[in-house]
């Protein structure tokens, strides 16, 4: 009993291990129930299979989770990433144009401009939070409400199809047998890691998230750190937006990136970053995103209506947030202790 108690305490404190464990459990379930889940076939020199799908379909979420991690670590949250995904896709699509096989803007420029717009969206959120002092939920709510409107305005309210092949490479291309989107995730992860762990930015972010008052006493410029965190989160949403619109070969102001903000926040929480800010782990958030994606894939393969995934996600969120709650851990602890007392 005492052991169980200490295990619960430990699970609460070492959340990264816990999320690895959760991911392993889901995969193990599949291994037992659906052995073909792990089958990987090679077709035209490309890898195919459920596992590859998880990585490929989860790529936008993983990128998004990296950006969201930074914002959550400062003690904030960004609700507007879904609409930013839609805006980015719309900008890229409208720059490329609707002609078959050609583009109005060089691909590189179109993507760069679209990402620039995404970063600008993040910057806007950052200004509202850091300079005007609006609470993060509210500040990003504004772009959440208006963002889809802007995206629809750009696409003129229609779903814009893209017919320019080279653009598809981000979402559905392959390189060395692996999906290109996977390389994008890897690149974003490495850059993000270097940028936070090889400059002092990461330390500042954590420090502000843990104790913003004490951080002020050490001279950290909280405003600029937050501004940068939101801007980078916007940029990551933009990258996710490019991958998504490239994958579905269209831009849809209404539905692109729908629910993604919630999945991204959930990934961060599952990855062990406390939602009240502080210590963060990009790797954890990526694992969190993988948990969500493999959960979805698993549910698809069980034949349960895929919409029920939301119920499962809800239970996961409750479980995770309760495990993060000190009061809950204490309560469970004292329950176990009292039972032990009764047995003795």
């Amino acid at each position: 009993m005492k052991k169980l108690n200490s295990i619960i305490q430990k699970l609460g404190s070492n959340r990264l291990a816990w999320s690895m464990f959760a991911l392993a459990a889901i995969l193990l379930f599949n291994l037992i129930v659906y052995p073909e889940f792990f089958k990987i076939t090679i077709l035209d020199g490309h890898l195919y299979g459920s596992l590859v799908d998880i990585f490929r379909n989860g790529a936008p979420l993983m990128v998004l989770a990296i950006g969201m991690t930074l914002v959550v670590a400062t003690g904030g949250v960004d609700l507007s990433v879904g609409p930013v995904i839609a805006v980015t896709g719309a900008v890229a699509t409208s720059l490329i144009g609707l002609e078959y096989g050609s583009t109005n803007t060089p691909l590189f420029l179109a993507v760069a401009l679209a990402l620039g717009v995404a970063a600008l969206c993040g910057f806007w959120n950052g200004i509202l939070v850091s300079r005007i002092g609006i609470q993060p939920i509210v500040a990003t709510l504004i772009l959440y409400v208006a963002g889809r409107g802007v995206a629809q305005m750009i696409t003129n309210g229609k779903i814009m199809r893209i017919f320019y092949e080279p653009y598809f490479v981000f979402g559905s291309g392959y390189f060395l047998s692996l999906p290109v989107s996977l390389y994008i995730v890897l690149l974003v992860y490495i850059v993000a890691w270097l940028f936070t762990r090889r400059t002092s930015f990461g330390l500042y972010v954590e420090s502000i998230g843990i104790n913003s008052e004490a951080s002020r006493f050490t001279g950290i410029n909280e405003k600029n750190v937050k501004l940068l965190a939101y801007t980078l989160c916007g940029l990551c949403a933009g990258i996710a937006g490019i991958i998504i619109s490239s994958n579905v070969k269209s831009a849809d102001g209404n539905n692109a990136g729908l629910w993604y903000e919630l999945d991204a926040i959930l990934s961060v929480a599952l990855g062990g970053t406390s939602l009240s800010g502080g210590r963060f782990s990009f790797a954890g958030s990526i694992i969190g995103a993988l948990i969500i994606q493999s959960l979805t894939t698993t549910i698809y393969s069980t034949g349960v209506p895929p919409q029920v995934i939301m119920l499962v996600k809800a239970l996961v969120v409750f479980l995770v947030s309760l495990l993060q709650s000190e009061n809950f851990r204490k309560m469970i602890g004292s329950l176990l202790n009292s039972r032990k007392g009764a047995i003795q």
Binding site: L262, L275, M310, L311, A314, L315, V317, F318, S321, F328
Partner: peptide, 18 residues
């Protein structure tokens, strides 16, 4: 349990949809 309201009700939203 001092779960942030925004998280708890987010889960509530998922649950209700599910």
């Amino acid at each position: 349990f001092k779960v942030p309201p925004f998280i708890a009700t987010l889960a509530g939203m998922f649950m209700a949809r599910g």
